[in-house]
Nucleic acid binder design. Structure first.
Lengths: 244, 244
DNA sequence: ACAAAAGTGTTCTAGTTACACCCATGG
DNA sequence: CCATGGGTGTAACTAGAACACTTTTGT
């Protein structure tokens, strides 16, 4: 690290930091799904801005990083404070600091992506009275700042991660049917998968186990499965391709 | 973004930012290769620290982000200032802000990885008199701060990128033999590749063209190739797997 | 002549894709 | 009895891995 500006936190008589520091924020693109099976929809959590600039616009939840706070912790905290939502999957996407992205001055944000299980959506109106709401990913309102771009980047990151990691299971209840898992993957990937191939591959992978019950519905009941975390960890450790 | 602390750059009478802002730096893990063919070595560019803390230790080049400066631009600038090296490939790896990583206080760094062509190594001793030196990646000195971890992360990122992008060509001269390309890929990936398979695949890919000359050496001369940027762009646009 | 790197095809295997029919249930 | 989603196997194709000998040059 360069020593040209006296470093942050230096004590005593040395001069303080010469240049204005960029502000550092975290923003979180939060995804979840609602509906069941053939009517599954990807949705995004947004908050309404209470102040200028962009007062009244929708934005990604986020905020300033506290002193001595880790970036992931800051993202989780902001999400909880602003929306009452506790994430179950959180991943860093990138740092973005394009000049001019915030009209108030130079602000660098560390973008994260989070996933919330379908059954834990209960939003708490946040302390500072801003609204948090779910929007369908396909029909978003205009977003504040460069948040439309950020969201696009997060979506992209997610698509790639899904192809390489277990994120799907973060969005499902403990017991689920293969069709539910498949529909979820299809929603996240944005493309259809062949049912027979999917079932074969996912069962051959060996990290799922049948459980006693069945999912009752309007039609033929479906076998329930659960994830075997141990087998699953072993599977991903080998860096074997996931079945989708 | 949270409004709890008055935002950076807000004008007039509002209170200023309440919390100390984390300092924001960029660090760059710079890789290159030296030697030819069967004696090719991956090397890393480090600078010697002139001040405490870690005075005299080796560290990644890097420094503070200037006002209204983009992150990538900051990384390129620091690299040039500190080492005289102009990068030809630069990619963001991640932001790291683990509390305690800098003894002077809360410092978040945006880690980048850069590649330098083998024939452009001329280091300029930097203005502030610090040393810049290449080290073999396999035999590194102890590093300042958490830079050993950062370097590991950058190496990892690079391995993954090589599997998915054209970074190899950033390290080669304009005309090169297939063996040179292969040796380079092997060095970066850290594993051997089958020669016949490599040649077939890379030639089938269709983004290389034979050029007139031959590489003269102690042994049988080798056909020279050049990259066809247009074909190459088309190839990667399709997200087809690269031949290695 | 020999040492050293360049150059060249084929076979086998594993993984991926495409595809169609019967089954169980609720209404 | 019919509409809806659950459940199953096989054949064709494609991509990747393994593998050995001949050629050209410098010394």
């Amino acid at each position: 690290m360069s020593e040209k500006p006296a470093a942050y936190g230096e004590t005593g008589s040395r001069r303080t930091y010469e240049w204005p520091r960029p502000a550092l924020t975290v923003d979180v693109a939060v995804f979840s799904v609602i509906g069941t099976l053939n009517d599954l929809m990807l949705q995004v959590l947004l908050v309404e801005r209470a102040q200028e600039p962009f007062k009244g616009s929708w934005a990604l939840p986020g905020g300033f990083v506290h002193e001595n706070e880790d970036l992931g912790a800051a993202a989780a905290r902001e999400l909880l404070e602003e929306t009452g939502v506790r994430e179950s999957y959180l991943d860093q996407v990138a740092a973005i600091g394009t000049p001019g992205r915030d009209p108030r001055g130079h602000t660098v944000t560390v973008l994260h992506v989070a996933l919330i299980p379908a059954d834990k959506h209960d939003l708490v109106s946040s302390g500072d009275a801003r609204m948090a709401r779910w929007f369908p990913a396909a029909k978003l309102p205009p977003l504040a700042f460069d948040h439309a771009k950020l969201l696009e980047a997060a979506r992209d990151h997610l698509r790639r991660r899904i192809a390489a990691t277990p994120v799907c299971f973060e969005l499902l209840p403990a017991e689920f049917t293969l069709s539910e898992l498949q529909a979820l993957c299809e929603t996240l990937l944005g493309r259809a998968l062949d049912r027979r191939n999917f079932r074969r591959k996912v069962q051959d992978a060996g990290f799922l186990a049948k459980v006693k019950g069945q999912r009752e519905g309007k039609h033929r009941p479906a076998q329930l499965f659960k994830l075997l975390p141990k087998e699953f960890a072993r599977y991903v450790a080998q860096e074997r391709a996931l079945p989708w």
